[in-house]
Design a protein around this nucleic acid. Structure first.
Lengths: 150, 150
DNA sequence: TGACATATTCAACATATCCTGAATATGCTG
DNA sequence: CAGCATATTCAGGATATGTTGAATATGTCA
């Protein structure tokens, strides 16, 4: 009954896009929600998600909050209603900040355990790996900063 | 019977490290194999993997080849034996080139479908997203290049 | 407060993924 | 080639993950 169901080209885009995000460990449904947020004419309610994507409302609710939790969507409350609408965070960095965070965590893990787990060549290699991770993180954060994140 | 089983500190490192890689969609066992490759005193056979990590040999075989497939390990053949030893690719970029590739694919998907799936503000936002992905990819590739990859 | 609309939780189910042991294939030596 | 060592495949079982509908909670209005 929603006026704005995805066209078949949009459905294909939604599925392909989500499939790619899968490679970063994102559940397919989360990716589909996010893709639809990028295409929908405006902020989307949970019922609209459920209908547009052919999923249950409880599933939509959980996926939407996961998305919100990792900064890829934000919720808009409507005055005088319990209803929530979601929109994609327009700042594209949020989706990828996560990767940069993982790089930082990996580097942190390596550096904190370095002496306990390795020595000699392995120790040096691990130290290099941590340095590399941090350099990569810095580069990513620079771009994210430049294009905006929030 | 292997002389070089991981110490308990190493076991913790292996599990924590692998757990983090999980966030990029890597199966836990692959991550554990890779972590052990970073700590082991030298190239590792499948039997050694199986014992060091407490997994079956068939599992070790599959995980090792997955690692090889994404460029995080390489196999060393021993002359006069069918036995293979694996070592971590020392060039740290390989583990992360994958992320940069996904960015490129996402940008490609967006650009190729742009006109079919969006217009107006959404179209502009998607175009920006693709540009952002490519900028991020370029930054990552630069660092990877600088630190070496192969 | 009661009636309504909506969101959230949760236990059960469905599905995908991982792991294993047994069987098979491959490569090496003599 | 026979015999050995090792790797690989694969079907089945085990585990983890995703999905659902029903029940519950939350917020809003009159």
């Amino acid at each position: 009954m929603s006026i704005d169901a995805p066209s078949s080209a949009q459905q294909r885009f939604i599925d392909d896009f989500a499939q790619m995000l899968t490679a970063w460990g994102m559940p397919l449904t989360c990716g589909r929600l996010y893709a639809w947020l990028l295409l929908a004419p405006g902020p989307v309610t949970l019922d609209e998600f459920a209908e547009a994507l052919g999923i249950s409302k409880s599933n939509a609710s959980m996926a939407a909050r996961d998305l919100e939790g990792i900064g890829m969507a934000r919720r808009l409350t409507e005055r005088g209603s319990k209803r929530i609408r979601y929109e994609a965070t327009t700042e594209p960095g949020n989706a990828l900040k996560r990767n940069s965070d993982i790089l930082g965590q990996l580097a942190g893990l390596i550096r904190s355990r370095l002496d306990a787990v390795a020595d000699g060549r392995n120790r040096a290699r691990l130290a290099d790996l941590a340095t590399f991770h941090l350099a990569l993180k810095a580069a990513m954060d620079g771009v994210i900063e430049r294009y905006g994140s929030a």
